[in-house]
Structures are given as C-alpha cells and as structure tokens.
Amino acid sequence: MTESAISVQGLRKRFGDVVALDGIDFAVPAGTVLGLLGPNGAGKTTAVRVLTTILSPDDGQAEVLGLDVVRRPEAVRARIGLAGQYAAVDQNLSGRENLRLIGRLTHMPRQLIAPRADELLERFDLVDAADRPARTYSGGMRRRLDLAAALVHRPPVLFLDEPTTGLDPQSRRDVWGMIGELVREGTTLLLTTQYLEEADRLADQIVVIDHGLVIAEGTAAELKARLGATVVEIGLGDPGEARRAKSLLAPYAVREPELEDSQVRIEICEGPRTIIDALRTLDGDGLAAETLTVREPSLDDVFLALTGRPAEPSEPDEQVSTRGAA
C-alpha cells in the first residue's frame, strides 16, 4: 500500500461569513502530483495555507508526512516547500542572496548553503542574473527564483500555488519542465491551478474544487471522458452541404452534432484519430471542409459539465473573492 504524503479530512475554514473550505477530503500518495483545480475563490489557496501551517483550520484534520499541521507545525515546516503566485522574493537581494537567506532560515548546515544556492541557480537558469537584485528580474525569472527558493532545503513535499499564473507561454513551459524534473526525483507535489491544461500536463490525480467543496476527482483522462472531450467545428460551403455533413459525422460524435448555418459542431472523444477519419469520410462524399477549429476542453467546460454553470470570472485576490457556500 502506498503511504499518503498529504492527507486532508473534513477540512473547514471560514473567514467571517465567507466559507472558504466547506469540508474537503483528499489524499496525495508519496511521490505523486495532485492538481487542485478550481476557479479563483474556490478555496485552493486556503487549502494550501492550512497545509503549510500558515492558517489554522476551524475543523477537520490535515497531515503532511503523517504529521498533524496544527499539533506539529514546526516539524511540518521543516519538510515542506511553498511557492506562491506572488513570487515572494526579496527585491533588494540578488538571486544568490535570496537563496542563501532561505538556507539560513531553514537551518541548513552552513557549509551546504552556498553550494546548494549555486546548484539551484544553475538548474533554474539564473546563473547570469545570480548577482543582480531580484528587482531587475523579468516575471519569468522571478517566478523561477521563487520556485528555487522553495527548494533550497530540499523539502520532500512541495506546495505550488498557481505557479504559472500570469506567465507568458515560454516561461510557463520552462516552469513546467522544472516541475517535471522535481517530480521525477521523488518530490510529492500539490499544485493549484486554474488551467486544466496545466493539471493535465503535470498531475497524476486531479481534484476539482468549487465553493470549498470537492466536486470531482480523478485522472485528467477520467475527467475529460466525463466532459465529452474535444470540440470540433467544421465549416462547409453552404447550409445544404452542412446538413449532409451533419449526418455523415454523427457516428464519430459522442452527442448529436449541432448545426449552425453552414457550420457543424461535433464533440469527439479520441482526439486526432477521430478527426482524420471524420474528414476522410467527408472527403469521400465530395464534401470539403472550408474551416476547421479544434478546441480542447478548458476549465470552463469542466465546470459547465460538472456544475451546469460556467466558472465565474477571475478575480485577482482569492481571499477577497471567496464566496459564501449558501
């Protein structure tokens, strides 16, 4: 049996009238990645704050490596790393100084601190900027430094709160690559994200939360299967052709295709393979697709499928935007 590195049972937390966590349960087996997926205000950050001993819960239990976060906060802190969405580094210190400061504050043996900082600067591609104040870093560099800072004392359990929010696509891919490497080394990771793509890419298991409650969990593939998966829109020459195409495409779709003017919209399960087959069928009947749009399901689709309503618009501060559960 695999041991849980993180386990949460019946966790509740409210701020005044606002219920941030309404009794959530989940467990993360050691050496695996859990993606905590949900819109802003769902309670993701609150869950991370409780697990990292920053907030104490009103009710329920949370353990990290078998240590209760309320009763043994100091022991928990020695074993975790946290990187948040704010890139919390000292702007006036250089990258190297920031990492060494964390080394001192985690009480690492002195002789290990400098080499560990150098190793992380190398690994996170910050060597050239190592001695410049963090103030001069780009957003992506600051985020990488923040991630490195969470790793200085080599914590076996890592919490990343929306590690790529606000990053450009290239920096996001860089951060993903670095996270992937950590996981291969055996770090247990809890990752919060608003992006299904990110959870899909990094997480073994996904827990979807909304209004402080777990509304779904499973692997990315399982969740997508529940969603009806990829949406394909094919534009034809005219509405007549589109009607013919609709009946030809019906066997490939998981639901009855939809028709709109000269456009057919189908939802398919088996991604690229199905699209090729479907287009061949159209071609064989003398129908040529004039436009083609393929859209992977997004968090909005997950929410629409799970709750029947779209994920609410993003708000910048989770704590402010957490809504009441009632």
Partner: peptide
C-alpha cells in the same frame, strides 16, 4: 515506491525545541 525518497537538507525538529537551543535559533 518508498514513502520519502527526498531527504531535507535542513535540521529536522522532530521534537519541539525548547530552552536555550530555542533562543539561539531565534
């Protein structure tokens, strides 16, 4: 897979630190 393949580099206060040691740490 074993429970923890990653060992932290810092000190591990398994027992909460008290007295003089706590003061020097602070």
């Amino acid at each position: 897979m074993t429970a923890t393949t990653v060992t932290p580099l810092g000190g591990l206060p398994d027992l909460d630190v008290h007295g003089l040691r706590r003061f020097t740490v602070a």
